[in-house]
């Protein structure tokens, strides 16, 4: 599904990723944990194609294609999805308009016919219901006036609609109380399938009790320093990240 080889990336001339190697197979859920400033968010932006993140070395292959050669929107259309740490507000644009435009752009790329308004509404209502989101929420402007939990659920709704084959969840747990966290995690779990892989980025083990990963990696100062099974998350929770050194040492 996704193969990252010796990935180096800089932001404003500063090297943040210093040789990442990671292979994710179809259906697998990988978690990346690590201290602040380890490059977790940089990795998610590099994979999703944000401007300003420059890859200086290495390669990323996604379903046999060179991911790094694609623009952000092509990656989305090819099936890469990023759930944002801070979902963005777009005043005046309703969730339905936004998602219909996005979904039809992705469908067009895949050579599928565009959905008309009725087909689309039927689909979004069904998906929203599964995430415990009411009609009002899907009609409101994108993330405007949404609580932290609502914004995250909204991102998961977008994921449910766009049906990516690879989803990156960037600190999806940040700013959520336990009830909101459960709702979001339920949503994510309902989207797990043998064809869909996920990369879950988080500081805390807490999220991983709800979204149970197949593999856990520790990212520290630009490199993956340790990999293991789900039990590694518990170990990190107990011991902290101190043993992986400090930025100066890296």
């Amino acid at each position: 599904m996704l193969e990252i080889k010796n990935l180096h990336a800089t932001v404003d001339g500063k090297e943040i990723l210093k040789g990442i190697n990671l292979t994710i197979n179809p259906g697998e859920v990988h978690a990346i944990m690590g201290p602040n400033g380890s490059g977790k968010s940089t990795l998610s932006y590099v994979l999703s194609g944000r401007d300003g993140y420059e890859v200086t070395e290495g390669s990323v292959t996604f379903q046999g294609k060179d991911l790094l050669a694609m623009e952000a929107e092509e990656r989305a259309a090819e099936g890469v999805f990023l759930a944002f740490q801070y979902p963005v507000e777009i005043p005046g644009v309703s969730n339905t308009t936004f998602l219909k435009t996005a979904l039809n752009a992705v469908r067009k790329h895949k050579g599928l016919p565009e959905l008309d308004a009725m087909q689309f509404l039927k689909l979004i209502r069904a998906k929203a219901k599964a995430l415990n989101m009411n009609d009002d929420m899907i009609k409101r402007a994108v993330n405007v006036g949404f609580s932290g939990g609502e914004k995250k659920r909204n991102d998961i709704l977008q994921m449910a609609m766009l049906e990516p084959s690879f989803a990156i969840l960037d600190e999806t747990d940040s700013g959520l109380d336990i009830d909101a966290l459960k709702l979001v995690a339920d949503g994510v779990n309902s989207l797990r399938s043998p064809e869909r892989s996920m990369l879950v980025i988080t500081h805390y083990q807490r999220l991983l009790s709800y979204i149970v990963p197949d593999h856990v990696h520790v990212l520290a100062y630009g490199r993956i320093v340790r990999s293991g099974g789900k039990e590694l998350a518990l170990e990190l929770e107990a011991k902290g990240y101190a043993e992986f050194g400090s930025p100066e040492a890296a």
């Binding site: 989305a76 259309a77 944002f84 777009i90 005046g92 644009v93 936004f98 996005a102 402007a141």
Partner: peptide, 20 residues
């Protein structure tokens, strides 16, 4: 970027944001 990460081209994104 939020719009592009959902599959919209930059021009479509500007159109959508301005229409909003």
């Amino acid at each position: 970027f939020y719009c592009r990460a959902r599959g919209l081209s930059e021009e479509d994104a500007v159109g959508l944001i301005v229409n909003g």
